[in-house]
Design a protein around this nucleic acid. Structure first.
Lengths: 148, 148
DNA sequence: TATTGTTATACTCTATAACTATA
DNA sequence: TATAGTTATAGAGTATAACAATA
């Protein structure tokens, strides 16, 4: 019975967390949209605060290198990014153009301003929230003998 | 300056929330996978706790009716769901078969057991978390004159 | 006329495999 | 031989549009 309650509580909290993050993603999508960008391009722009090898971007986006090629093509078409040669001559870095940097600034500011955590929580509540989120994000420790 | 800090804090917290929900989704995906189900079918099974018109499922999944047709086909192939006629003769209800109900029970239990909120938080922490999440999920109230 | 579910079709996002140029 | 980026192609997931049956 109390175990059942715990499971229900877990389900509820999990669903709330997912709903919250879905909202945050919607917010991001609508910001990207207001700038005329598909979400995946906006994400890439945000990640390119500093010029990076295409390979690194693939790692950060957890996607294939070939997909980064297509992202880079789209970003170049929009004049947001340019490919610049790396030291290792196999490598190409993606670097924001000045327009790209401007767009990145706009996204970044809009995201922060619309953030649910700012609109809905007081400073004190945010302070209370952080350690809870940190606990949730702990890496799986050396698994207990019993689990799994 | 303190405004800048607030924006950084907002970014951090938002990213943490998204990371947490991504994990929860990964967990769900791996549960679905362990039962041999694609995620979208597992989600549908979870939603079908009680028989529902295909139209309702489309609303809950926020997808097109035509896509529900294809979900229903796949679920029927696996003998998890059957189409039963509704009162309104245009309507078909999706109802879990006994196998479907069993699978639903398995998913539900696995989800709750693996839930990060149970694995990482104490009871007290969960109690502290809930009101914060509730605040984050408040509907947008009558917008302030200033906003937007 | 409007709505439910279906069918056929097409699109978007992303991956895989094979290729090139370097290392 | 292994790695970075590219190309061509294919797949999964989902939508759109037109349709039949019913309301």
């Amino acid at each position: 019975m109390s175990s059942r309650d715990a499971l229900d509580e877990a389900r509820q909290l999990s669903q709330m967390l997912i709903a919250i993050s879905d909202r945050a993603k919607q917010d991001f999508a609508s910001i990207a949209d207001s700038l005329g960008l598909p979400v995946h391009l906006a994400r890439a722009v945000v990640l390119l605060g500093t010029p990076a090898p295409m390979r690194d971007l693939a790692d950060q986006l957890a996607c294939d290198r070939s997909y980064v090629t297509s992202l880079a093509d789209q970003l170049e078409e929009r004049d947001l990014v340019e490919r610049v040669p790396g030291e290792d001559r196999r490598v190409k870095l993606l670097r924001l153009t000045s327009k790209g940097a401007e767009v990145r600034e706009q996204i970044s500011e809009a995201v922060a301003n619309r953030a649910l955590v700012l609109r809905r929580l007081t400073h004190k509540q945010r302070q209370a929230l952080r350690p809870l989120l940190e606990a949730l994000l702990q890496e799986d420790a050396a698994p207990h003998a019993s689990s799994r």
